[in-house]
Design a protein around this nucleic acid. Structure first.
Lengths: 144, 144
DNA sequence: CTTGACTCCGTACTTGGCTACGGAGTTAAC
DNA sequence: GTTAACTCCGTAGCCAAGTACGGAGTCAAG
């Protein structure tokens, strides 16, 4: 049987998404990826939708989400009932927006550094810490 | 000796930044946080700058940076020579901008879901995977 | 119908990032 | 000046996220 985009062996699937076979099996055990049925004891086959799902897992991971959190995001993708979905989505949205704000501040600081480096050819530092402190509440002894 | 914001014991430092004492010592071993000198065999003291640095570590971690990468970011903060800094900063900037783009797409998908949930009170799903696929090169067999 | 590459599945090992433990020393409060 | 809480430092253990291994089964090409 040929190995088209809708008929991938696990090895071709892994190559298509740029991960190892063992990682795929690991994600399946975690419930993040489906385990297609084996035709009468044969081998499982995967399709483009699986590749997309796996790439999403890797992208989300890079954005700082744990596999458990990614599982929650995938439940949203898969469509859950509205009440449940909405609460979860709002929670994730808050998280994503905070990350966006922090990353944007980091972007500003880094691009400032690059610009400074381009003009004056001297020793420069980069106020990364200070830029991320803006917009965070200063911590007191009682706010845990 | 009192425990002011510029004269923190490690315990107060940990509480101020919301982490455990052992984590601080771990970051010190990794070179991410300084180990202040011990006054004639006494105990180390920490200040507000250390708190900021530690909070930066935690924030960056949440944004998907590993401790090694955070070490690189801190080298930028601390000011290295321009040539080196610029290359590193440009590299990190590229990474940050990719993350920003992905997070923004995720934000769009999630806020769309929340909006949909607010209006129709039905079963909805959330095209997270599709939204993140836009702007990614479709993978062929030769582009690794 | 064999051969070589691949799949399946279980188990074990590894790495990154902490967390716990414990004995010896330090400090602050009484 | 003793006591309770805290610090120091080394070592060990833990959890998340994989990675490696290996024997048995499957598949496709010759």
């Amino acid at each position: 049987m040929e190995n088209t985009l809708e008929n991938l062996t696990i090895g071709a699937f892994a190559r298509a998404a740029g991960v190892g076979i063992e990682a795929i099996r690991f994600y399946q055990r975690k419930g993040l990826l489906p385990e297609p049925a084996r035709p009468r004891g044969g081998i499982r086959r995967y399709g483009a939708a699986d590749v997309g799902r796996l790439q999403f897992v890797k992208t989300a991971q890079r954005l700082g989400f744990s596999l458990d959190e990614i599982g929650e995001l995938l439940r949203l993708e898969d469509g859950t009932h509205c009440a449940e979905a909405r609460a979860l989505a709002e929670h994730k949205l808050k998280d994503v927006r905070e990350k966006l704000a922090d990353l944007a501040r980091m972007e500003t600081a880094l691009s400032g550094l690059v610009r400074a480096c381009r003009s004056r050819k001297a020793n420069v530092s980069c106020p990364l810490i200070a830029s991320l402190q803006e917009g965070k509440k200063p911590r007191g002894k009682d706010d845990d």
